[in-house]
Design a binder for these strands. Structure first.
Lengths: 209, 209
DNA sequence: GAAGGTCTTGACTGACCGGTCAAGAAATGG
DNA sequence: CCATTTCTTGACCGGTCAGTCAAGACCTTC
């Protein structure tokens, strides 16, 4: 995504309402990228702000120019990632009319996203265990489940999925997906296709099929 | 499990090889229980050793009499919980000869255990994101998956489960179970039976059935 | 080239944390 | 009763961390 030209008109603004130049936006993005990487690698608490700025070779003040606190910084990383994942999911199913096929496409695209953003796996999983961060995570997850629920309901109406609590079915799908992604993509570095096929088959047919 | 009498013979020994009196064993257990509770509630890093001992109304030295470090302490909590969960699973399926039924019983009993040890949920999930603790967690999870794999293989041989990679099927089951446990037992406090029924149905029949 | 906003520096502060230890209390055993 | 071992105390140490801030560099605009 190319940055908009924005020559010298109304500039983008950060969370506190300050203006940000193009240069400033780049720094911001740099910090978030590096922060996500380090948080994922060593954990949120064990990673100091000092380490993050040192990796970029800048002073500590830079961090606090762009973010009000380490906590807010982490929340922004989480929100940005969730937004990006959702956008990808939506784009992947946009042209598909078959609800079951939409579920399958959603699984595939989510796995692909997690593959490309392996570092976000640990971050999500850690964030959900901390009271300070869990609400944001839960909200995002609920949105994802809501998407699946709509497809499932539609398919139940069409009589193509057995009549069970749609939310439970959706949650189960999310569970399969995230656990398989962790085990096979994150820990064992296998291919998205193989995992996606396995996940789709299990979600549709279960053990017996 | 009643503590053995052990009047004044060879006494139980702690990790460092020191003897432990009955009183000592109680303190140890107290610390682990309270530690698990606090770690789960506030997180591992944000919970200080000081807080743990203060909650029990004892001095800091007590902690370091029974455990060599905060890290080792946490690992012991994890190991003890995993051992307990596994024992419960094994006991639950001991008398069952049907492999598919064994899977179902395992799901039920695991959910029951997580319901009784809600605090372990966050601990497990946090631990798996930290390089220091992940190996222990992964090993325990692999044991659990291995148990399921055996039942699945047996059922495949009998032609009762479709012929797919047994480990992937087992991992998918674990994924469904842990995510449903988190969502419905941990976050929403629903009944084990309802969740277990949903989980079993999904694992056996998937969406279509 | 001056003015003013944007950005950067890094020393500093106050708080906290994991872990130690000398001293002594409490139980145990003879 | 004394000796030994087990257990407890809490002040203390070295170190780290999130966050501040005065000073100044950079950049844009007029």
């Amino acid at each position: 995504m190319p940055a908009p030209p924005a020559p010298h008109t109304t500039s983008p603004v950060d969370a506190a309402g300050r203006r940000l130049t193009t240069r400033g936006q780049k720094r911001r993005a740099q910090l978030m990228l590096e922060g996500a990487r380090l948080f994922a690698e060593r954990g949120y608490h064990p990673t100091s702000v000092q380490e993050i700025v040192a990796t970029l070779g800048v002073g500590k003040g830079v961090f606090y120019w762009y973010f009000s606190s380490k906590e807010e910084f982490f929340l922004e990383i989480l929100r940005a990632a969730q937004t990006d994942l959702r956008r990808r999911q939506q784009a992947a199913i946009a042209d598909e009319t078959d609800p079951i096929r939409r579920v399958e496409l959603g699984i595939e695209e989510s796995l692909r996203w997690f593959r490309e953003h392996r570092e976000m796996f640990n971050l999500f999983q850690f964030a959900i265990t901390q009271e300070k961060f869990a609400p944001v995570l839960r909200q995002g997850q609920q949105v994802a489940v809501g998407d699946v629920v709509r497809h499932v309901k539609e398919a139940i109406v069409e009589g193509r999925i057995r009549d069970q609590d749609p939310e439970l079915l959706a949650q189960a799908i999310v569970g399969v997906m995230s656990h398989l992604a962790r085990t096979y993509l994150y820990e064992r570095d296998e291919s998205v296709e193989a995992v996606a096929d396995g996940a789709k088959a299990f979600c549709l047919h279960g053990l017996l099929g």
